[in-house]
């Protein structure tokens, strides 16, 4: 298949950036979007041009590294996939495809399509854990977790931290990411001891990073590669209320 690509090129954080046009010729319909970029890059390098920088690693939808905006859609115009999982057969031969980086204030652009998502690390540092030192753990089966609760916690825990929620949110809000962790740990007995401090400090850090607020459009849920539900946001809100007013 042949495509015409419009790709955002930006030398570094300070550069203004612009779109450049490339031809992607003879692309297999089975190739992923990233593999198509590999082919384009190969051509660029061979003629001594700067390759298009993009984040990627596992290429099987779990590491959360990849994340670009394709034709206005985060991870592409379809739902519930990561960029590396998106195959070219979902496009038509001859299509013009526009590729740009995530645009979120809290994810500054490093180069081309690569953004800095370390804000997520800092949010996790604020409270996305259970305080237990190595060696302090009690026998695992002493902590019973009903299957239903464990399953719900797992639904939330599946988040790959790709940032698609914030990138697709018109408010650049990271509520789904933060809620997934808050909700997972609020559901499990292990996380209950620190639930109050956790939600308050994680939300405070989220605000500090410059993410927007939730305006309940639920675009994040529709786009999330792991289909993390906005009901976890509801739980986080509840946790927050409880932390603020409860004892």
């Amino acid at each position: 298949m042949d495509f015409k690509l419009r790709v955002w090129r930006q030398k570094n954080r300070g550069d203004k950036g612009r779109f450049e046009t490339y031809e992607a010729k003879g692309i297999s319909s089975e190739a992923s979007v990233l593999e198509m970029l590999d082919v384009v890059n190969r051509g660029l390098v061979a003629v001594g041009k700067d390759a298009i920088a993009f984040d990627h690693d596992c290429r099987e939808g779990i590491c959360g590294s990849c994340g670009i905006v394709i034709n206005g859609g985060v991870h592409g115009p379809f739902e519930h996939n990561t960029t590396c999982e998106l195959r070219m057969r979902r496009f038509s031969d001859g299509d013009t495809i526009t590729i740009e980086p995530f645009r979120v204030r809290a994810f500054p652009i490093i180069k081309d399509l690569v953004v800095d998502r370390t804000a997520f690390d800092r949010i996790m540092q604020a409270g996305g854990y259970v305080t237990v030192k190595t060696g302090q753990a009690p026998e695992a089966n002493n902590i019973a977790v009903p299957k239903k609760i464990a399953d719900e916690a797992m639904d939330a825990a599946q988040c790959v931290g790709c940032g698609a929620c914030a990138a697709t949110c018109p408010n650049g809000s990271a509520m789904l990411f933060v809620a997934a962790k808050v909700s997972q740990l609020a559901l499990l007995p292990q996380g209950k001891a620190e639930r109050k401090e956790r939600v308050l400090s994680m939300v405070a850090q989220m605000d500090k990073e410059g993410f927007g607020a939730c305006s309940n459009s639920y675009a994040c849920e529709a786009k999330c590669p792991k289909s993390v539900s906005v009901s976890h946001i509801a739980r986080m809100n509840r946790e927050f209320l409880r932390a603020g007013f409860g004892s």
């Binding site: 905006v69 645009r103 809290a106």
Partner: peptide, 9 residues
């Protein structure tokens, strides 16, 4: 403010 730039498409 949190989304300073719109997507081109």
């Amino acid at each position: 403010m949190a989304r300073p730039k719109a997507y081109a498409v």
